[in-house]
Simulated scan of single mutants.
Amino acid sequence: MASQKRVGVVLSGCGFLDGAEIQEAVCTLLSLDRRGTALVAAAPDIEQRHVVDHLLGAPAEGESRRVLTEAARIVRGKITDLAHVSASGLDALVFPGGFGVAKNLCSFAIDGRKMKVLPEVERLVREMRAARKPMGFVCIAPVLAAKLLGGEQVKVTIGDDAETAAAIESWGARHVECRVEEIVVDERLKVVSTPAYMLGPWIAPVAAGIDKLVSALLELAS
């Protein structure tokens, strides 16, 4: 009988405008749980870049929240500080999307092609790559793979957004256009990506793409 796979899920807060995209996160967790994996949810213990009122779609002035505390909402409190997670304790790793990826895990939303990646995120991605363990990147999260693994010409997708695709290719990565229900697999580097809410339009097709990503990820981990 195959041993249970331990899969890390890195969250960037709670709410698509300033944290993790909740539907993408839940679809990822559900797909992994249905396949019998041991879930290791994690988030960095840092301040969010800002807080957005999701009803108004505008910044909530004077509010501040922590990424780890907010991300804990999605996983019923069962979450670990990203600083305490290493590749040695994982078989695979997934990054759901949301603006939190581009604001909290890196600075893509602010700095574009000149973005910097949060040191703990960079450390873990590079550890996983060095150990040749598979990673999945959902929605906007492939910019992390592109920035960190562009030197190896990693192949990823964010759907068909020309500006983001151009940024990805500026780092040496290869962008592949993709429909929301589909995935792109870089078997050489063991990286899987899917557009999710970079394309939308709603939860069913997003869930279909994420489920395919999880299936491919676990196959690469076997």
Rank of each mutant, 00 (worst) to 15 (best):
P59V: 06
E61C: 10
E63H: 13
E63M: 13
S64T: 13
S64P: 05
L68D: 04
T69I: 13
T69W: 11
E70C: 03
A71M: 06
R73L: 04
R73E: 10
T80A: 13
D81G: 07
D81F: 05
L82H: 00
A87V: 07
A87M: 03
D91L: 00
A92Y: 02
F95P: 07
G97N: 04
G97R: 01
G98I: 03
L105R: 02
A109W: 04
I110F: 11
G112V: 04
G112N: 02
K114H: 13
P119C: 00
E120T: 10
E120M: 04
V121G: 00
E122R: 14
R126G: 06
R126M: 13
E127D: 10
A131Y: 11
K133Y: 09
M135W: 04
G136N: 06
F137R: 02
V138I: 15
A141M: 05
P142K: 05
A146Q: 09
K147E: 11
K147T: 11
L148Q: 03
L148F: 03
L149W: 04
L149E: 08
G151Y: 04
G151V: 07
G151Q: 06
G151R: 05
E152W: 12
E152K: 12
K155F: 02
V156N: 02
G159E: 06
D160Q: 15
E163C: 08
A165I: 00
E169Q: 12
H175C: 09
V176E: 14
I183K: 01
I183Q: 01
